[in-house]
């Protein structure tokens, strides 16, 4: 499908499409913005622009990804996600059927998560000015009065919990985009985590901080926490779950799964005394069935993240300025 010069007829077409999939009381108000009821507490707002190639990949597409990503950013603040907005930048000539699939996927994700998309906008740009479709979502959530989760609260002795396997999303994207015919398909882990987080918070355990290790992967997230808190972290390589096909693909591509993106995993820094409680709550939830204790927070003036490896060594898991640049001289 092509849309001619982006005229009025086409915008109408898109609006109908959104109305059909997203139908809810706020959109039905038909105003420029959504009028929302009082939330009754402190609000958290997060926004995320989603750009992904390919748009469709095993385990998901840009639509559900844009819903999960923002819900997770709100949820790791300890908040209950309430509402989402969505804005679309569409490239002229983008197939309407694809858009329909994406919007349907977003609607499904939003419905499953129980977080409605209450307002939105669409712009169409000339062919070549965008890569199919870009979706920006913003989420608002409410956080309980007595809860503060923050990256600067990790203390030596705390433990590091991970909700499941790493690297699935990034490798699913790469394998699809580059058409690297690996034996077993790799499926993205894209998912909304607020249910798992609610279960964790319900334990009343001393959770210092939650993070979703998206871009830059687990390594980058742990390094951010270490630097924010002024501590070091010692990870145990053997304890970090990595799916076999992801490990194999990473090895083949020369990538370190620690730096590969995830879209449905979280890291929790938890007081050691509460580790078992939180871990049990995580494992009881479908999204945390493979949750693991992967390391501990240590005192370290360098704020190094280190990892004990299978060979009895300890290596630094660096934060990287950019890509994984070669360095072996």
């Amino acid at each position: 499908l092509t849309h001619g010069s982006g005229g009025r007829a086409m915008v109408q077409l898109i609006e109908e499409l959104f109305a059909r999939h997203f139908a809810n009381e706020w959109l039905a108000q038909g105003n420029d913005g959504a009028l929302l009821p009082p939330a009754g507490g402190r609000l958290v707002m997060a926004t995320d622009a989603h750009v992904v190639s390919p748009l469709f990949f095993p385990g998901g597409d840009i639509g559900c990804l844009s819903v999960h990503g923002t819900i997770n950013d709100v949820a790791v603040m300890g908040a209950t996600p309430l509402w989402l907005s969505a804005s679309f930048i569409l490239e002229e000539g983008f197939p309407l059927a694809d858009l329909d699939r994406i919007v349907a996927s977003m609607a499904r994700a939003s419905k499953e998560a129980g977080v409605p998309i209450v307002t939105g906008d669409t712009k169409v740009v000339e062919a070549g000015k965008a890569d199919g479709v870009f979706i920006t979502t913003t989420g608002v959530g409410m956080v309980p009065e007595d809860l503060t989760l923050s990256g600067d609260r990790a203390r030596p002795g705390d433990v590091v919990l991970l909700s499941g396997s790493i690297g699935d999303h990034g490798m699913a994207i790469m394998a699809t985009r580059e058409n690297l015919g690996f034996a077993a398909p790799i499926v993205s882990d894209t998912a909304a985590l607020h249910g798992l987080i609610a279960a964790m918070l319900a334990t009343d355990a001393e959770i210092r901080c939650l993070r979703d290790p998206t871009r830059g992967g687990l390594a980058t997230t742990i390094n951010e926490i270490a630097r924010q808190s002024g501590v070091g972290v010692m990870l145990d390589e053997a304890a970090i779950p990595v799916n076999g096909e992801v490990a194999a693909a990473c090895e083949f591509l020369g990538l370190d799964p620690l730096y590969v993106a995830n879209e449905g995993k979280l890291v929790a820094i938890v007081a050691a005394a509460d580790a078992d409680t939180v871990l049990a709550a995580m494992r009881a939830h479908p999204q945390g069935s493979r949750a693991a204790l992967i390391g501990e927070v240590v005192a370290d003036d360098h704020h190094f993240v280190q990892m004990t490896t299978g060979l009895g060594g300890r290596r630094i898991v660096d934060w990287l300025t950019g890509d994984q640049l070669p360095r072996i001289c």
Binding site: L180, G181, F252, L253
Partner: peptide, 21 residues
């Protein structure tokens, strides 16, 4: 290891280098 060819053709984590080593 046929995928390596794909990697090379598509330049996936395959930066060019002038390294003699």
């Amino acid at each position: 290891k046929a995928s390596l060819r794909q990697m090379l053709e598509r330049g996936v984590n395959s930066p060019p280098t002038s390294s003699c080593g």
